[in-house]
Computed example of a mutant assay.
Amino acid sequence: MRAGNSRATGLTRWQLLNEMGLPSQWRLREQAALRRGGTAAFAGPPATTTPAVSEAMAAVPVVAAAADAPSPPAVSRSAGPPANDREQQIARLDWDGLRDSVAGCRACALCQERRQAVLGVGDTAADWLFIGEGPGAEEDLRGEPFVGPAGKLLDAMLAAIDLQRGENVYIANAVKCRPPGNRTPEAAEMATCAPYLRRQITLIQPRLIVLLGRAAAHAVLGDVGSLASLRGQTFKYREADGSATGIPVIVSYHPAYLLRTLQDKAKAWEDLCRARTLLHTATTSAALPA
């Protein structure tokens, strides 16, 4: 994990926390006690207990499994229709092919009012994958996700845990075209874009996925409950081939929501601290001999 990226912004960690609207007591600190066979955990505020998820997932195969608490029941997934030709074609694309396919996509009505499709931005071999809901007006204009005020807040949040856009971080959205009036993407629109998102995950192979907002959670996990009920849990994203290992997935607030609801910034900081702990644990476990 890269360190020192907060210095690249010209701000101290505490100034970054102030930029996020958090008081100085919200800070990372390594606990003296070691967890999981010597793995140091980065302390955040106590995790919120949330109910286990019990509804069927509809989009991709993900199994719920809490990291720091007794495992909730596994989430079942109803059998869906076989992959069509479009999905099979997308599943074979490399990055150049994926960019071309997204740029020319006419599979749903969102293409009608877009200036350009927005695939994503960042390190294509990143450990961290952040997924939002869809491009806004400025993203549609510039062709990059999370720009403007929400993007500035996300950059401050990343810098506060020693991350930086483009370095070990990839940022994507559930849909690649701007919904009219910046509305929340509809379920059918997210389902149409889902093969692109799945292919991005396969190509990146991140060690951790952070879902920003209810729409992103719906796109990846299915319609499994409110954002409040999903926070504090750890899910596993598994590839369609049914591989035994999975990528840890957590759910947090979208930066645009945090700009409107300042009191939840502390909860988002808690989520980032827990995400950093999860990634540290996953990285350490992967380095241990079999």
Rank of each mutant, 00 (worst) to 15 (best):
L154E: 04
R142T: 09
H218P: 00
G143W: 05
S6T: 04
T202G: 06
M57P: 03
S243Y: 02
L163C: 06
G242V: 04
L197K: 06
V63I: 10
P70R: 12
G80V: 05
R183T: 05
P51E: 06
L98W: 04
A266S: 15
D100A: 15
R142L: 15
A219S: 14
A64K: 01
C111S: 11
L11T: 03
T234M: 15
A79P: 01
I247D: 03
R115H: 11
P45K: 13
P61S: 14
Q112M: 14
I90H: 05
A275F: 03
Y196V: 02
F42W: 14
E144A: 10
T277E: 12
K152I: 07
L221Y: 10
R114Q: 14
A43Y: 08
L34I: 01
Q112K: 15
D94I: 06
G10N: 06
Y170H: 12
R183F: 00
D223C: 03
Q112L: 15
S76V: 12
A40M: 05
R35K: 06
R35F: 08
T245F: 08
L208W: 03
R198D: 02
A66R: 05
H254M: 11
A65I: 04
D127N: 13
V169W: 02
P51M: 09
S78N: 04
T202A: 15
I90R: 07
A159R: 08
A56L: 14
A52W: 04
N173W: 07
R99C: 03
C105Q: 01
Q205L: 09
P149C: 11
Q205V: 05
S71H: 10
T124H: 11
L154R: 06
N84F: 05
A64H: 10
R178Q: 13
R115Y: 05
V75D: 01
C108H: 15
E270K: 15
R231P: 00
A191F: 05
C273R: 14
A194G: 01
F130Q: 02
L141N: 09
G80M: 07
I171P: 00
L11E: 13
I131P: 01
V102A: 11
V175F: 12
G132I: 02
A59G: 01
